[in-house]
Design a protein around this nucleic acid. Sequence first.
DNA 1: TCAGATCATGGAAACGTTTCCATTAAACTT
DNA 2: AAGTTTAATGGAAACGTTTCCATGATCTGA
Lengths: 359, 359
Amino acid sequence: MAATIHDVAREASVGIGTVSRVINNSPRVKPATRERVLAVIDKLQYKPDPIARSLVSKRTNSLGVIVPFFTRPFFMELLRGVEIVSARLERELILYNVETNAQRDHYFSELPMRRKVDGLLIVSLTPGDAVSRRFQDAGLPVVLIDAYSPLFTSLVVNNVEGAYEAVKFLIEKGHRRIGFINGLIEGNFKFNQANDRLIGLHRAFGEAGLLFEPELVLTSEWSRMGGKQAALQLLSQQKRPTAIFAASDMQAVGVLEAAKELGILVPEQLSVIGFDGIEVSELLELSTIYQPVQAMGEQGAALLVELIDNPAKIPELIRFDTKLLERHTTGPALTPVTHSEEQGLPEGEASRLATRHLL
Amino acid sequence: MAATIHDVAREASVGIGTVSRVINNSPRVKPATRERVLAVIDKLQYKPDPIARSLVSKRTNSLGVIVPFFTRPFFMELLRGVEIVSARLERELILYNVETNAQRDHYFSELPMRRKVDGLLIVSLTPGDAVSRRFQDAGLPVVLIDAYSPLFTSLVVNNVEGAYEAVKFLIEKGHRRIGFINGLIEGNFKFNQANDRLIGLHRAFGEAGLLFEPELVLTSEWSRMGGKQAALQLLSQQKRPTAIFAASDMQAVGVLEAAKELGILVPEQLSVIGFDGIEVSELLELSTIYQPVQAMGEQGAALLVELIDNPAKIPELIRFDTKLLERHTTGPALTPVTHSEEQGLPEGEASRLATRHLL
DNA sequence: TCAGATCATGGAAACGTTTCCATTAAACTT
DNA sequence: AAGTTTAATGGAAACGTTTCCATGATCTGA
């Protein structure tokens, strides 16, 4: 049906080798010949078959991305960055979505076997030792985003620092009872980002001489519902926190919903700060710790392609900084209010109290 | 390096044909032989090379999805549906994101040539006659989602009916000055969904004997900013509308932002209804016309796979119904308010604040 | 028991490239 | 002009499968 390299060779009265050289821009072709071949290619509308091509060249010209819950805003924005670069570099993008441990293991074990992709981007998932070795033995280039392994180039955000800043920010606003809703560490996968964020909290607490109160630290799914339920629990304690730091924006949105349901005013009676800086956080004017997700996706894809072209490249660890985005869900702390007092604080009372705390 | 079919054949003392038959579950193999071959396959960890496989079988086992702005919530949810089915059916999913006309044309012209995918899902984009013919000539199965062509199986939502319901709903609430913010028809692509929604509006207007006022109908990008700017314009008219229907939820979110910026209370002074039913609409309690996007993605993928297995299948048109979701951005129409009245709304001050928090 | 039918099997050919080696043509050198 | 280097070219081999045909083994029924 479609023209093959043989058709072109015959029509141009050259050998298939020459046609191949023309296609691949080899310099070892006389200009006149190249012209002639090019003309025939154009006439026959010839396109080399990518499959036959990769059978022998061992290159597929495609990038695989293993990503959990790709539909979630955080991953979407990351994927957007990946897509931008892969499109620019003319690589196909194959999506491997992971929602269960079984799926993750499936991809981890199948992908290195047969090279359907030239390289693999793994997002928010840390391959274990056995799996890592498989990737290496198979010679499959791998780059990790939002996950770390000494074996692979890894792009991570400074989670400890980000969490530290969030909590420090709340402390500086005068908050003393600070709730923390963390994400599951071993829930579905090894999200050790969660652990880092907890560490950051500890550091800020330590620095401020604050006592760590375990009943103020909860763990939930990395989702809106998870955050909401945890917040409901946190906020119905006898001495409820005056501020809540959530390990992700989606969880923070859940906190907002919980507060609303309980009739607690944000930020007047409760400060809320999230983590991620996804689009909804902007819509809801949620204060948050922004991480440059799209940029991470872009750079991850770019590094992967570099690695494909030069497999000897040694793994590096690339850190991205977070940025605190103060919006409208955070405010100065009030002294704990009793029911009778809950109605109205005169204007300026809040800031006076906050100031007093700071001095 | 890795074992090939020849290694297996040798080790099991059979011919490669037999191994091939075992892999492909052909019944024409004696059980004893099958066992033996299977054992060797297991021992050598043999996996057939998908590339060599597709070179001869002309099957790649992958689905392509051409989708504009895949990062937008509407497309994301659709993609989620597609992914669910493609994962279940063990097809790889290749993403072709389109942000410009050039990109669209690039994919439209390249994809039918190189058979890198077994079938193509085209989302919200209508291929022209020439392109359609190319797809057909190349024998590439195509399914359209949120777009219609008589040449391909198409899944569409009843846009006319949906828009009609939205407007009728507003009219029944007593609104008479109803603004419509439509999406661009020829902005980037031929989104003729926009036209359908306009028609629905006309029908509702006609039925209610309402006059169509051109100055109340604007067109914007299918985005938050687009919606916001259009709303700003609509709301600063001398006789501003008491309700606005936006052709997409993202535009409706922009309307809410504009209203907030102008100090116009929703739903007290302005009713807003969107179209799509994406997750943010729920967060913001936006009334909207829900369309079963994920289901469309799922069914589209399923139909595409059917079409791949049976290319003779005749194109069909599948319609999905929308559903009106009444939430908290729509209310009864008030008589136009003057400035002096705008101050105090006694009822629900607290809930107003709470609502504000969520925006 | 034997002819005919059916089943199981082996392996060559084909898929459409790239790679590499051999060969021929062209360009220098002296 | 002849010898030597270098450039350009042709095409076989290889990549790892599936497909298909030929062959031999096994079964069937009288």
